[in-house]
Design a protein around this nucleic acid. Structure first.
Lengths: 347, 347
DNA sequence: ATTTAGCACTCAAACGAATGGAGTGCTAAC
DNA sequence: GTTAGCACTCCATTCGTTTGAGTGCTAAAT
């Protein structure tokens, strides 16, 4: 347990480091208004804080730098997230004052605005397909041997696949299948669909379709193979403005990692369930490539149900307080806007 | 007009520079097997080539570097694109030996494989929506105040928009409208659709729909506002492996430019019509941010009609010959595969 | 009339010693 | 417990020196 003075000093050091990106010396801290001690005293406290693992020294004659443990403590106990910046508030308000007409557009623009507001990289996960329910499946033939299959969820998300139709299956067969699926499975969660198809309506389908197996294979392959939701990234190059990523190779590692959608997706899958807002610092991400980065995530909702996630990725030396304030405020507005969009202006 | 010897020397210099990224000295060239002259002779020729604008000197006591004019001459007159690399051939063959089931997947994977094969950034433009024809429009209601509108082209491309339905318009109205559009406009080019709607079937629609204006506004806004085709980028970070982009700021400029879809799209719009394959070097791109880059583009086709474009972006010091060989070979295979996918295995 | 050998000259990059200064740890006084 | 003072450390910067690749020019060779 840290003393009040230690907390004050640790907080001052991290605040300073977040803004200067330079190791913080004892004199810098002692000169601050809210600290009433000489540099010598600060030095002693700093030595203690280092021993406790909250600070690090790049080399003997340099100032101190927060360790990841230090950041964690800072985020958990020292953060002041009350005072919003008027500029940020205005930016968010301005964004949501726009007229939106479709969900996808809102989500995409969200990524843009968040990276611009924060000056970090924004990561936005669109509505998770498999959380949602089936509204309808539709098959539109293109040529004798190809068709496009369209799956619509209750949240208005549309997934489509152009599929090539195997020899020996008629358009008729497919339409029959689709009709049955639509009839039986409307409102079923996409997660359950596959099993439901294979168990419940298996028999019924077999009765109606001679070419059942082939059609099933086609449909399955179309929709269930890749579970890749849309990941929207914006402001990836912002990381290169951070002094600690002025090195091309360091920046490249992060950018290469960001380029791999699956890696980003994996990160978001490992979100703990509880809590709307989450901060993960450096090693806590369990991803080698972003060991020197932190990610702050928040969820947005439709009808009280979690729809997707927005996140901000920056260096561990991130402006935690500001980003948290922005994300909290933003997702609240986002959920509201999506609800309005979905249920109509009135509600 | 250059003499044969000048061509030989220019070619040798550029070849060397492309592989080493270091200014090329006269001695290096004179030592090559296929050049039978002393370094002094080469020096004289180099001085001439510099005077003609094909070469540049970073500083007096350095070797020569090709100018953009030099690259242009090299690409136009000195390129040997005959001998394919077996590795590249194999890579392409391996790719197309896969079983593909949908167009979108092929296009996406194309971006991945091209950046991997070339070690440059690949830019792939999916089928251009507005070149294609309408197959069908479909409206699926989600809630009393929102619906998803789906537009399907004859090439199997699906565009969808979630739209919020204005007060006073019933689902019935919309369905009526959709039925009319589908009936009247099937097979019409998307480019012509808007005008056709406003002229030809205007009267008919008005008769059937009291809320015509509002519905039209909704539909128009849904589909015609953004003409954003999908741009697939892969291997953007490859640029950072190029020695001339080891500088963070230089790399950042290019990456920031690439992040802006509209800029990339603009570049591809300015493609000259003629010729399947096109090389644009540095300033020829007319984009400040990529003045030190070159782009090689090639088109792919469906039924003899241009469907989309693939491109490779690298430094002006790019392996032109190799990339051209890869793109030529690749797009030929791609067109073939897409045709097979669309028309069925047999054809 | 070309081509080449030879040589003086240029200049960026690499190296290394010297300097400056921010910051520490420790000790002794307050 | 706090602070002033001081010796010490070590990185970053500066600045001259060296190195070497490469040039341009001239005069000899072919």
């Amino acid at each position: 347990m840290l003393t009040e003075r230690q907390k004050k000093i640790l907080s001052a050091i991290i605040d300073d480091y977040i803004h200067t990106a330079e190791p913080v010396g004892s004199r810098t801290i002692s000169k601050r208004r809210d600290i009433g001690f000489s540099s010598a005293t600060i030095r002693n406290e700093m030595a203690d804080l280092e021993e406790l693992g909250y600070l690090e020294q790049p080399h003997t004659s340099a100032g101190r730098v927060p360790s990841q443990k230090g950041y964690r403590y800072y985020v958990d106990h020292l953060l002041n997230i009350d005072q919003h910046s008027p500029v940020d508030i205005m930016g968010i308000k301005y964004f949501f004052d726009q007229k939106f007409f479709e969900m996808e557009q809102v989500i995409q623009q969200t990524a843009v605005i968040l990276s611009r507001l924060t000056n970090y990289t924004s990561i936005v996960l669109g509505p998770e397909v498999f959380q949602t329910r089936l509204n309808r499946i539709q098959i539109v033939p293109l040529s004798p041997h190809s068709a496009v299959a369209i799956l619509i969820t209750d949240t208005g998300r549309v997934e489509n696949k152009t599929i090539s139709v195997p020899e020996g299956i008629s358009v008729n067969d497919i339409e029959k299948l689709v009709r049955i699926i639509n009839h039986k499975l409307q409102g079923v969660r996409l997660t359950e669909m596959r099993t439901r198809i294979y168990t419940e309506i298996n028999r019924e389908l077999r009765q109606h379709l001679e070419t059942y197996d082939q059609v099933m294979e086609m449909i399955s392959r179309g929709f269930f193979d890749q579970s890749a939701d849309r990941v929207y990234l914006k402001g990836t190059t912002n990381i290169m403005n951070q002094p600690e990523f002025r090195d091309v190779d360091k920046a490249r590692h992060v950018l290469e990692w960001l380029e791999r959608d699956d890696a980003v997706l994996r990160l978001f899958d490992s979100l703990d369930g509880d809590g709307n807002l989450q901060v993960r610092i450096g090693h806590e991400l369990h991803e080698e490539a972003v060991n020197d980065c932190s990610v702050i995530t928040a969820t947005y909702h439709l009808d009280g149900q979690k729809l997707g996630v927005v996140g901000i990725l920056g260096p561990t030396r991130m402006e935690y307080a500001r980003v948290i304030r922005i994300l909290e405020h933003f997702t609240r507005n986002l959920s509201y806007t999506l609800n309005r969009l979905y249920h109509g202006e009135g509600s």
